[in-house]
Amino acid sequence: MTPSELAAGVMSGDRRILARALSIVERGGGAAEGFLDALWPRPGTARRIGVTGPPGAGKSSLVNVLVREARLRGLSVAVLAIDPSSPFSGGALLGDRVRMVEHALDAGVFIRSQASRLALGGLAETTYDMVEVLDAGGFDLVIVETVGVGQSELEIVRLADMTAIVLAPAMGDMVQAMKSGIVEIGDIVVVNKGDLPGAAQFRDEIVAAFGMTVEAGGVSRVDSVVLVSAATGDGVPALLERIRSTSPEVVELRRRGSALRRLDMAVASALAGLRQCEEATRLLHDFAPKVQAGRLPIRVAVRDIVVAALRSRPEGGLR
């Protein structure tokens, strides 16, 4: 299948072709670039929703009930669920579908699992491109569920139009939640497991903690803290409404930030590819003894290597 046939297939709503296209993009290289070029300019209109939070907070269960709620309103949904790869074997066990089996046969729902392949930040390196492809598939919502994150994996807020941080009661005291990072980066804090004792109190403590941050002159994007229960469904309709009510101005702002980030990552990746060319490697080994002997300044060596690499236009570098 040619790149433009593939792109046409994705946009026509063919799910088998969509699945294949996602694999091509995930694998990267020339085939991925050709296909993404054919898809350009981005045809989709999906709202992009990020769901993040620590392991065990109930992200997948929350996504499951959000999808259920969206389907009741006739919205089609794609879910991209990311789980970590093993640093030792490079393999991964992707288990987010276990919580979403009720949607397995719904033609309006498409669920894809992705391994992080050791990228930092809670997403995989190709997640931005995967989201573009899902968007082109014509879904109303694209939900990206990150790897279970700690206190500094914030990449999702740069990708999504709006991000929900999922927390649950009894996962550590308030000091954990008050630390910088995870809680203040999102747009909504979702206190899940609202059916458990202590959940409402935990929600109140989070609200109080945000009050203190703001009074102290701190910055936070969070404008709501909502109590839900993925187990009972309580609070989920209101949460979906809040997610959907994100203003076009905010979405536009986020998209601009997202494009900047994506371009920055692509440039970094192209520069890294440039470094991989044979000429650069040859010069590196050639120059090292000269630098060591004090005959060649590092600055000059770097300039010569970069210029040589650019001239050689390596495969996998700039095209």
């Binding site: 393999g91 066990l93 992707l94 288990g95 579908r97 089996v101």
Partner: peptide
């Protein structure tokens, strides 16, 4: 080294 999708 494989990526395993487990559905339960």
């Amino acid at each position: 080294g494989m990526e395993v999708i487990y559905t339960g």
